[in-house]
């Protein structure tokens, strides 16, 4: 609208909404609005705009001003800008007033103390953890170690104690000698049963047993007096170094050597001298068909 026949202009409607109107003019405008609902709707719309604006922004005026704005007017201009608050977006002006510097120093002091405290706590925790680990792992407190086979001799020892003293110490007796050799060739990779009859040992037979790292062969011989001797052999690629001297304990003597890529252990209840001779004989019998070289002298000790 511009001007109606009763002299009311749009500016009067704005003035009515904004409270910029005299009481007499207000009555005239209100009478006009009663006669003109389209203008009344316009005024109503503007009033809603005003109310919406106040609703949207009035809460800001009710908030407490941020620290940077408090006392901003009274602050000495020489004192410089206010402290930078956490959480507010500022443009990075450094603080310089005496009060702010004191606050900064106090904050820095607290930060240093907190860092020192954290470091001490970490040190105490690490010390406690170290002491705990030492207490749990020191030799005196550890459980007794489980005895495991550490070498071929131990495996041979175990096989001898397991099988050799049985009435039927072998799976394959001499009448199935070909089957025994075939199985050993397949499982162990070596098939030879040295003839120890020249040293008074008769072959009873053999079996395939679990070795240190792979299947092993175990042959059992028997002397005239009934004493039994076992010959243990296993592929020796990954095995430990052989013993230099035979191991002798209260009842058994073991002689260990290497040959043809295998580890051999002759173990039995004969005397150490007899075991030494029997081992030399076995080694010679094993090496002779392959290389044709004389057997190496095996070290032995008397019990």
């Amino acid at each position: 609208m511009n001007t109606s026949f009763d002299g009311i202009e749009e500016a009067d409607l704005h003035a009515l909404v904004d409270g910029e109107i005299s009481p007499e003019r207000r009555r005239q405008v209100e009478d006009h609005l009663l006669q003109h609902p389209e203008d009344a709707a316009l005024v109503e719309n503007w009033r809603r705009q005003n109310a919406a604006l106040r609703t949207a922004f009035e809460p800001i005026a009710q908030e407490p001003p941020p620290l940077s704005l408090r006392n901003a007017a009274a602050r000495n201009a020489i004192a410089g800008p206010p402290p930078i608050e956490t959480g507010a977006t500022h443009w990075g002006r450094p603080s310089s007033s005496r009060l702010v510097r004191r606050l900064d120093e106090a904050r820095e002091d607290r930060r240093r103390k907190a860092a020192l405290s954290s470091a001490l706590m970490l040190l105490a925790g690490a010390t406690f953890a170290g002491v705990t680990v030492y207490a749990l792992t020191r030799p005196g407190s550890s459980p007794p170690p489980i005895t495991l086979a550490q070498g071929y001799v131990d495996r041979a020892d175990m096989d001898y104690l397991t099988y050799a003293r049985d009435p039927k110490p072998v799976d394959y007796e001499p009448d199935r000698y070909a089957d025994l050799l075939s199985l050993m060739r397949l499982k162990v990779g070596f098939a030879h049963a040295p003839d120890l009859s020249p040293v008074g040992l008769r072959l009873l037979g053999g079996r395939v047993t679990p070795g240190l790292v792979s299947p092993a062969g175990f042959l059992v011989y028997e002397a005239d007096n009934g004493a039994r001797v076992g010959l243990y052999f296993e592929r020796a690629e990954a095995g430990p170094e052989p013993r230099v001297a035979p191991r002798v304990d209260s009842s058994l003597t073991a002689v260990e050597w290497r040959g043809s890529g295998m580890a051999f252990v002759l173990i039995g209840s004969l005397g150490s001298e007899a075991m030494q001779i029997a081992a030399e004989r076995a080694a010679a019998a094993i090496l002779a068909p392959v290389a044709g070289v004389p057997p190496r002298r095996l070290e032995g000790v008397s019990p």
Partner: peptide, 8 residues
Amino acid sequence: EAAIPSLR
């Protein structure tokens, strides 16, 4: 100082 809230 008093105008700060409305200025904000």
